[in-house]
Amino acid sequence: MDRLAVIIATRGRPALVRAIVDWLGAQTRPAERIIVVGTQPADIAALPEDRPGLTVRIGPAGLPRQRNDGLRLAGDAYDGIVFFDDDFVPSRFWLEKAVDTFRAHPDLAALTGTLIADGIKSPGIALDDALARVAAHDAALPRPGAGLDGRFGPYGCNMAFRTAAIRGLSFDERLPLYAWLEDSDFGGQILRRGGRTARAEALRGIHLGHKAGREQGLRLGYSQIANPLYLAGKGTLPLPVAANLMLRNVTANMVRALASEPYVDRPGRLKGNVVALRDILRGRLAPERVTQL
């Protein structure tokens, strides 16, 4: 694997995406190309368009659409494609170890990393804190282990793919907006082709979990029901997994609705769950319906 492209979809976080792009300059094995896809000029206003190796574009909003735009821009010019969220801080060894792992395992189609911390389950992690923690981690463990866990598929904030293994695949644009579970669907498409996916111990980083720019409340609650059922019907998410996800989310929203975490709109999510369940009874449940809420 000789050439890498990193694709970052961004929306509403111009300063943050600039910081992440700058941080990628410290990789021990830099990418040949960084592609940032925003939804409006303000999203990419902080990025220097004349920076060598950086491609900046504006396209239709929606995570799958933006990632597909990135894939089209990359084409077949790169042996590997890496997706980072605009709030993910990778170890400076991330790209180097991804290339090493793909070379050591020719049957691997996709890799995802092992998180030092994930702010999506909390109010979020400050960028400066994450940068310091990742730098300290790299200093303490300059050459992390190479263990693989094949039970895991790609996790959207940090995932890498062998280009040859995903040729002709795309992120499902029926999953609009923030597109919950679009990573699981993409991984499921790879598995149906007979590709192998794994989580790598060597690929470390911190997901800030910033809430700005994400879909919350009512819409996310609807997607918590609509998206798993749609993907189960499509065959990219096993039905037992889809059922477990829905049950866990509805239960959590019910239990915590009266005493919601300050960073989570549990009442809104629960309302979205109820709207989706009603749509099932009416025969009109569809992931796209979230855009009408």
Results as ranks from 00 to 15, higher is better:
2 D>M: 06
2 D>C: 04
5 A>I: 10
9 A>D: 03
13 R>I: 06
16 L>V: 06
21 V>Y: 03
21 V>K: 01
25 G>Y: 06
25 G>I: 09
28 T>V: 08
34 I>R: 01
39 T>N: 11
40 Q>G: 10
45 A>Y: 09
49 E>G: 13
49 E>W: 08
51 R>Q: 15
53 G>T: 08
67 R>F: 04
71 L>S: 00
71 L>A: 01
74 A>N: 00
75 G>V: 01
81 I>W: 02
82 V>N: 00
85 D>A: 08
87 D>I: 02
89 V>L: 05
92 R>Q: 07
96 E>Y: 05
97 K>A: 14
104 A>R: 13
107 D>W: 07
111 L>P: 01
112 T>H: 06
116 I>Q: 03
129 D>K: 12
133 R>C: 04
135 A>W: 04
135 A>D: 08
135 A>T: 11
136 A>S: 11
138 D>E: 12
141 L>S: 10
143 R>G: 08
145 G>E: 13
146 A>C: 06
148 L>A: 07
149 D>W: 14
150 G>S: 10
153 G>L: 03
155 Y>G: 06
157 C>M: 10
158 N>D: 13
159 M>E: 10
167 R>F: 10
172 D>F: 05
180 W>L: 14
182 E>S: 15
185 D>L: 01
188 G>K: 06
197 T>W: 08
198 A>H: 05
200 A>N: 02
204 R>Y: 08
204 R>W: 12
211 K>M: 09
211 K>R: 15
212 A>G: 04
222 Y>D: 02
225 I>G: 06
228 P>C: 11
228 P>W: 13
229 L>D: 09
229 L>I: 15
232 A>S: 13
232 A>I: 12
236 T>N: 08
239 L>W: 11
241 V>P: 01
246 M>C: 09
246 M>V: 15
251 T>E: 04
251 T>D: 04
254 M>Y: 07
257 A>I: 01
264 V>R: 15
264 V>D: 12
275 V>G: 09
277 L>H: 03
280 I>R: 07
280 I>Q: 07
282 R>A: 15
283 G>R: 09
285 L>S: 09
287 P>N: 09
287 P>G: 11
288 E>A: 14
290 V>D: 00
293 L>I: 10
